[in-house]
Structures are given as structure tokens and as C-alpha cells.
């Protein structure tokens, strides 16, 4: 067991994956278990960052940087703004007393993970071709986005515009 773990960690890529995934899981668990809202957001930002690192080890440099920019940057900041706007007065979160709900939920989540784990362990996914390791990931993504995926890209830009306008309209004070 330990031999296999050491063997696994002897590869550089594996070591990086191990560290990043450890950080991501820890961040997620802190997000669940911490009591102050701002700390929760910070813990999740850690998870987002380490996920970005994992993306880069997977050869998706562009997506990794986008992850860092949008999730760890924009979304986290947005969340913190949201928390400030809704005035939490720094008090500790008091979780509602729902023992049945939480107990069932815990069991459900663990069983779901068990099923997923079982399926993942039993699945045999064999690549039909060797993993591509493109030299210039960002260039290729750019070319694909503006050729093959140009229509989804444009639709996505419209969606973003609509979403931001909508957000402004919704959050705006009525008397303004």
C-alpha cells in the first residue's frame, strides 16, 4: 500500500496532482466546516486555485488561467461583495437544527460518492489515440473558437450581456 503510494508519488506529475488535489479537497471541506462566511469564500478560492493548477498539469493552460482569473478572481470578489451587501455583522453562522435532513443528506452524499467511485473504478477508458500535447494550447483554442465554435461563442457573449444587464436591473434600487 505504502509502496504503491511512494511509487505513485515518485513521478513529478503525480506529485503535483497529489498536492493540488489535497489542497482542493481541504479547501472544499473547510468551506463546509468553517463558521464565518468570508472564511468560507476564502477556503473555496483556495480550491479554485488548486483546480486551476490541475488544469495546467492536464495540458489545458488557457483554461487553467481562465479558471484562476474568473473563479479565484471575479467570482470570489463578487461573492465577497454579496456578503458585504447583505450585512452579516460578522456573527457566526448558526446552522439550522435539522438532524433528519442533515443525517439523510450525509448518507445520501456518501452513497452517491460510493456509487460514483464504484463506477469509476470499474470503468475501462482506453484512449483510441495517444494523448495530444499541443504546443500552443491557447492559439489552437482561439482558432477553434473563431472557426468551428463561433456560433456558440457568439451566443455565449449574448448570454453574458443579457445576464449582466439583468443582474444590474435586478439589483438596482427601485427608487433610483
Amino acid at each position: 500500500m505504502l509502496d504503491r503510494l511512494i511509487g505513485f508519488l515518485s513521478s513529478g506529475e503525480n506529485l503535483v496532482f497529489f498536492v493540488f488535489s489535497l489542497v482542493a479537497i481541504c479547501g472544499a471541506i473547510f468551506m463546509i466546516s468553517l463558521t464565518r462566511v468570508v472564511h468560507m469564500v476564502m477556503a473555496l478560492a483556495l480550491t479554485f486555485l488548486s483546480l486551476g493548477g490541475i488544469y495546467i498539469t492536464l495540458g489545458a493552460e488557457f483554461v487553467g488561467w481562465v479558471q484562476v482569473l474568473i473563479y479565484a478572481g471575479a467570482i470570489t470578489i463578487l461573492m465577497i461583495f454579496g456578503i458585504m451587501m447583505t450585512r452579516h455583522r460578522g456573527e457566526a453562522e448558526t446552522e439550522p437544527q435539522r438532524p433528519w435532513h442533515n443525517g439523510l443528506l450525509l448518507v445520501g452524499a456518501i452513497v452517491l460518492f460510493g456509487i460514483l467511485f464504484y463506477v469509476i473504478q470499474n470503468a475501462t477508458i482506453t484512449p483510441q489515440s495517444a494523448p495530444v500535447d499541443p504546443k500552443d494550447n491557447t492559439l489552437q483554442i482561439g482558432q477553434l473558437l473563431f472557426n468551428q465554435y463561433v456560433i456558440p461563442f457568439e451566443i455565449m457573449s449574448v448570454l453574458l450581456t443579457v445576464a449582466f444587464i439583468g443582474a444590474i436591473v435586478v439589483a438596482k434600487r427601485e427608487e433610483d
Partner: peptide, 20 residues
Amino acid sequence: VQTYGLATLLGLLILALALA
């Protein structure tokens, strides 16, 4: 909404377990 979500999750699990 969270109770509904929990019920959905449990239903999904029952279906998956039945199938498995």
C-alpha cells in the same frame, strides 16, 4: 428548496441502486 433537492437526490440514489 433544499428539502426538495434532498428528495431528488434520494430518488436518484434509489433508482441507481435498483438499476445496479
